[in-house]
Each structure stands twice: as structure tokens, then as C-alpha cells.
């Protein structure tokens, strides 16, 4: 039986994420045989350090968490990342795995979509992704696409919108799929993620709701043989991430979401200039002014 691991959640105040505490604690609470939440790191370390990573200072927060000798560090929803920041964190971590838990990188719908993408990745010609809710972060959005097996490989071209931004880019794969990504931010908006991929094989689509809620969403493939829906999975992205991290600490899994695997995404997000590395902000005329 896998060992029960202590977990420390930190960085609420710095990240401005205190309002997410119930959701994080609920996710941990659904895994009582895997985790025990503690207020402070155990004396001998070996715990999981879950760092809430909104705002500018998350690399320092991760470095501070590493001081307590965790078995793994999870970076929860950074809104920005650069190759240098990731490098700084990885050097400080040494052999300790540092795992990215983006807003939807561990969403079961994204995971299931990635499994459908893999056998047809060289036939995908067009990707249309709509991400609504949360913080309009280009890094987080591109990380979601990477987690879905649809990583962009060209510098994104951004168009600002009153409530977010629109991205044009190209994905990898032999067909060099065009990628059109819309990211919209608004506290009043119904959170959703809709990712569609089209090609000569047919089409794939994943829909997901609010990542704080275990909304099942839908993952489908349509081709000449018909319509197939993947089994629904009632888990939040954080619960999936918690299980993955536990398996990584227990030694049975190498996480595909190691932070350093997102260096290309960070570089591409940074290539959009500071535009796209910060959340969209409303200017006085109501138009988005992504800083």
C-alpha cells in the first residue's frame, strides 16, 4: 500500500489565492489514504510542498519551500514563467521533482484528449481552443495545450481583446496544424475550456467546466466509423495532480508535467513580449491592456 504523505500548502497570501483554499483542501480531503495536510513541514522533510503560485514571486516561494526538504514540489497555477525562472527553480530543486499544476494541465478532459491526439497527431490540421475564466495567462493557456498533446511550436501572435486575447500559432506534428486560441478572463464568466482538433481522420473535442468543480465535461472523437465519447471522469485537475504527485513520490511514475518540460512553452509565451506573460488587465476605456 502506498505510503501516506504529509502535504503543506503555502503561498496563499502572496498568490492572492486564499479564496481557493476550500477547493484545494477539498481535493486533498478526497485522498485521505494518500495525504495528510499539515500546517508545517515535518522535521525530516519528505513531504509534498504545494505552492500556490499566482503573482510575481513564485520562484522565490518555491525556493523557500525547498528549504524544508520536500520529496516533491508542486507549482500551482503560475500565471507566468520564463526559461530563466524555471531554470532557477530546477537548480534549487536538484533531484527533487518540481511539477507544474496549471489550471487545466491535469484536467481529466485534457488528459483524455491527449490520449486521443497521440495516434493522429500528424494528421491534425486545425486546432480551435477556447479557455474562459480564471486568469488570462498565455503561459497557462499554452501549457494546457501542451498537456493536451497540442503544444505550439511557433511564436504566438496575439491580438488583445476587451476581455482577454486571441492567439495564432502552429502546433507540432507533420501537418503543422494551425492553432487558434482564445483566452477570456472575467470574474463573472462561466468558466469553460473547449478544445477542438480537426484533420483528415475526423475530429476530436474536449469540453470542461470550472476547474474547481469535478464537472465531467466531454471528450469525443468523430470519424468515419462514428462517434465515440470517452468515459466521464469526475475529478478536478487538482485531484488528478495530487494522485500523480503521490505516484511520483512513491516512485511508480515519472510525471509528464515536470516544470522543466514546460520550458519551450515559457519561451514561446515570453516571445510575445511582456504581452502574454501577465494576466490581461482592463484599461480605463474597457479594452484589455495586456502588460
Amino acid at each position: 500500500m502506498s505510503p501516506r504523505i504529509d502535504i503543506v500548502v503555502s503561498g496563499w497570501a502572496e498568490a492572492g489565492r486564499a479564496w481557493q483554499a476550500p477547493a484545494v483542501r477539498a481535493a486533498i480531503g478526497t485522498l485521505p489514504q494518500l495525504y495528510r495536510e499539515v500546517a508545517a513541514p515535518p522535521a525530516g522533510g519528505g513531504h509534498v510542498a504545494w505552492v500556490m503560485a499566482g503573482g510575481d514571486t513564485w520562484p522565490d516561494a518555491v525556493a523557500a519551500a525547498l528549504q524544508a526538504g520536500p520529496a516533491a514540489v508542486v507549482v500551482d497555477q503560475p500565471t507566468w514563467a520564463t526559461p530563466d525562472a524555471i531554470g532557477q527553480v530546477e537548480r534549487a530543486a536538484g533531484t527533487v521533482p518540481v511539477i507544474l499544476a496549471g489550471s487545466r494541465t491535469h484536467a481529466p478532459q485534457v488528459r483524455d484528449l491527449a490520449a486521443l491526439v497521440e495516434p493522429v497527431k500528424d494528421q491534425i490540421e486545425w486546432v480551435d481552443a477556447l479557455l474562459v475564466g480564471g486568469e488570462a495567462s498565455l503561459f497557462d493557456a499554452l501549457a494546457t495545450l501542451q498537456a493536451a498533446g497540442l503544444a505550439v511550436v511557433t511564436p504566438p501572435r496575439l491580438t488583445a481583446s476587451p476581455h482577454g486575447f486571441v492567439v495564432e500559432a502552429t502546433a507540432g506534428g507533420a501537418a503543422r496544424a494551425g492553432v487558434h486560441l482564445t483566452v477570456l478572463q472575467g470574474a463573472g464568466y462561466t468558466p469553460q475550456a473547449v478544445i477542438k482538433a480537426f484533420g483528415s481522420f475526423g475530429s476530436l473535442a474536449a469540453t470542461a467546466g470550472d476547474p474547481l468543480v469535478a464537472y465531467p465535461g466531454e471528450v469525443i472523437r468523430i470519424d468515419q466509423s462514428g462517434y465515440r465519447a470517452e468515459p466521464t471522469d469526475y475529478q478536478t485537475p487538482r485531484r488528478v495532480a495530487l494522485r500523480e504527485v503521490h505516484a511520483a513520490v512513491a516512485g511508480s511514475l515519472v510525471s509528464p508535467h515536470r516544470l522543466n518540460s514546460y520550458v519551450p512553452v515559457a519561451a514561446l509565451a515570453g516571445s510575445a513580449g511582456r504581452l502574454g506573460t501577465e494576466p490581461a488587465r482592463q484599461s480605463s476605456d474597457g479594452r484589455s491592456s495586456i502588460q
Binding site: D128, S161, P162, V166, H180, G202, S203, I222
Partner: peptide
């Protein structure tokens, strides 16, 4: 801002 997207025909 307006986005207009369309693609056809295809198996979808």
C-alpha cells in the same frame, strides 16, 4: 473584438 471561424466540410 470579433472572431469568425469556419471550416468545412469534414467528418465532425
Amino acid at each position: 473584438t470579433v472572431e469568425l471561424l469556419a471550416r468545412m466540410p469534414g467528418t465532425w
